[in-house]
C-alpha cells in the first residue's frame, strides 16, 4: 500500500516536471512573436529599408544592415554610383571584379540562361532609353529599340577568372536583382549575430528570418490596383523566406490609351505583354526571388513552371481579370482579402 502511494506520487511529480518542460519549450519557440517588435528604418539603394526585430531590440545590428546595403549599392552593384564595380565595368567594357560582385554576375547569368533570356542583365541601355524613372513618358522610336537590341544579349558577356568583359556597347543593370541581393546581405548579418527572428524589407522585397522552421509569418501582398496600401492576399509562411513581386503597376505611363510599364521583354524591347498584372515569387534566396519575379512576369504562367522548379521556388500570378493563380500546395496558406480577386489553382 505504502509503496503504491509512493509510485503514484512519483508519477504525479514526474508528470508535473514534463508539463513544465514542455511548456518551456513551447514558450521558447513562440515567445518572440508575443513580444512587441522593434522597427528600424533606413535608406539605401534609393529605397526605404525596414528592419524589425522581435524580442530584444538590436539597433546596432539594424545600423550594420543599413550600412552594408549602402556599401553593396555604392561600391559594388549600382550602375549609377561612380565608385561602384558595375559602373567601372560599364564605363570600360571590362573590369576585374571582387569575388562578391563576380558571384552576383555569375548567378544572374545562370538565371538569364535558364530563363531563356526572359531575364537579361545586359538591357541597361534599353532601360535607359525607356527611362521610366523620369517623367518624360515617351515611347522610343522603333529603330532606337532595334539598334539597342542588336547589342544586348547576356551570352555576349565573357568571364576569365575575375575579369568580366561585356559585349560591344553593352550596359549591365542589376536593378532587377538589387533589392534581393540586399536582403541576402542582411541575412548574412543576422546569421553572424545569432538573431532568432526578424523581418527585413528593402523597397518591396521582403525577407522573413527565423532560426526555426516553426515560426510562422503573415505576409500581405499589396493589391495591384489599390490606390491605398491594402493587401489583397495574405500568405502564411514558415521560417526564412524571400518574397519578391514584379508588377505592371510600379512604374508606367499611358500613351495613346495604352499602358507602358517598366518590365521590359528583352526579346522585343517593349513592355512584356502576357495578360499579367503581377507575379510574386517565394524563394530561399533573395537574388533568386527578385530575378525570378522579373523573369516569370516576362515568361507568363505556363513557361515559368520549369524555371520555378529549377530554383525550388513558388510563384503567385495575378492576371488582368483579377484571377489569382496559386500553386496547389500553397492554397491552404493563402487568404484572399479583397472580394474583387478570385483564386485559381495551377499545377
Amino acid at each position: 500500500m505504502f509503496q503504491q502511494k509512493n509510485t503514484q506520487k512519483l508519477t504525479i511529480v514526474l508528470t508535473a516536471v514534463i508539463v513544465v518542460i514542455l511548456a518551456a519549450v513551447v514558450v521558447f519557440f513562440v515567445s518572440d512573436s508575443m513580444q512587441k517588435p522593434s522597427e528600424h528604418l533606413g535608406y539605401a539603394m534609393g529605397s526605404e529599408i525596414t528592419v524589425i526585430f522581435y524580442g530584444n531590440d538590436k539597433k546596432d545590428i539594424a545600423d550594420e544592415i543599413f550600412d552594408s546595403i549602402a556599401n553593396l549599392d555604392t561600391k559594388l552593384i549600382s550602375r549609377k554610383s561612380a565608385a561602384s564595380e558595375i559602373y567601372s565595368l560599364n564605363e570600360n567594357g571590362t573590369a576585374e571584379l571582387s569575388e562578391e560582385t563576380l558571384g552576383y554576375i555569375k548567378k544572374a547569368l545562370e538565371i538569364c540562361e535558364y530563363s531563356d533570356g526572359a531575364l537579361d542583365i545586359t538591357i541597361g541601355s534599353l532601360s535607359s532609353l525607356w527611362d521610366f524613372d523620369s517623367a518624360k513618358n515617351k515611347i522610343p522610336e522603333e529603330h532606337e529599340i532595334a539598334e539597342i537590341l542588336s547589342f544586348s544579349g547576356y551570352e555576349k558577356i565573357s568571364i576569365d577568372a575575375y575579369t568580366v568583359t561585356l559585349g560591344e556597347n553593352q550596359i549591365v543593370d542589376l536593378g532587377a536583382l538589387g533589392k534581393g541581393i540586399a536582403c541576402d546581405t542582411a541575412k548574412t548579418i543576422l546569421d553572424n549575430n545569432n538573431i532568432r527572428s526578424a523581418l527585413i524589407k528593402v523597397g518591396g522585397t521582403v525577407m522573413t528570418y527565423s532560426d526555426t522552421e516553426y515560426k510562422e509569418w503573415n505576409i500581405g501582398i499589396r493589391a495591384p490596383d489599390a490606390t491605398d496600401l491594402s493587401a489583397f492576399l495574405k500568405i502564411s509562411l514558415k521560417g526564412s523566406k524571400f518574397i519578391s513581386t514584379s508588377g505592371n503597376y510600379e512604374k508606367f505611363f499611358t500613351a495613346d490609351e495604352k499602358i507602358y510599364h517598366h518590365i521590359l521583354d528583352p526579346e522585343t524591347g517593349y513592355p512584356a505583354e502576357n495578360n499579367l498584372k503581377s507575379v510574386t515569387v517565394i524563394s530561399e534566396n533573395g537574388l533568386v526571388s527578385d530575378a525570378l519575379s522579373t523573369a516569370c512576369f516576362v515568361l507568363g504562367i505556363e513557361k515559368s513552371a520549369e524555371l520555378l522548379e529549377k530554383y525550388n521556388s513558388q510563384a503567385i500570378f495575378v492576371d488582368k481579370q483579377n484571377n489569382v493563380y496559386i500553386p496547389d500546395d500553397m492554397i491552404s496558406s493563402c487568404t484572399i482579402l479583397n472580394d474583387s480577386y478570385r483564386i485559381s489553382s495551377y499545377e
Binding site: 535608406y43 526605404e48 521582403v206 503573415n218 505576409i219 500581405g220 501582398i221 499589396r222 493587401a231 513581386t245
Partner: peptide
C-alpha cells in the same frame, strides 16, 4: 508609406494577433 527623397515615412502599428499581417510586400 515613405517619401524617399525627403527621408520621411509613416507606418501604422497596433495590436498583434496571429491573423494580422506582419509585413507588406509589393
Amino acid at each position: 508609406s515613405a517619401c524617399v527623397p525627403n527621408r520621411v515615412s509613416v507606418y501604422i502599428k497596433g495590436e498583434k494577433t496571429e491573423d494580422d499581417i506582419d509585413i507588406m510586400a509589393y
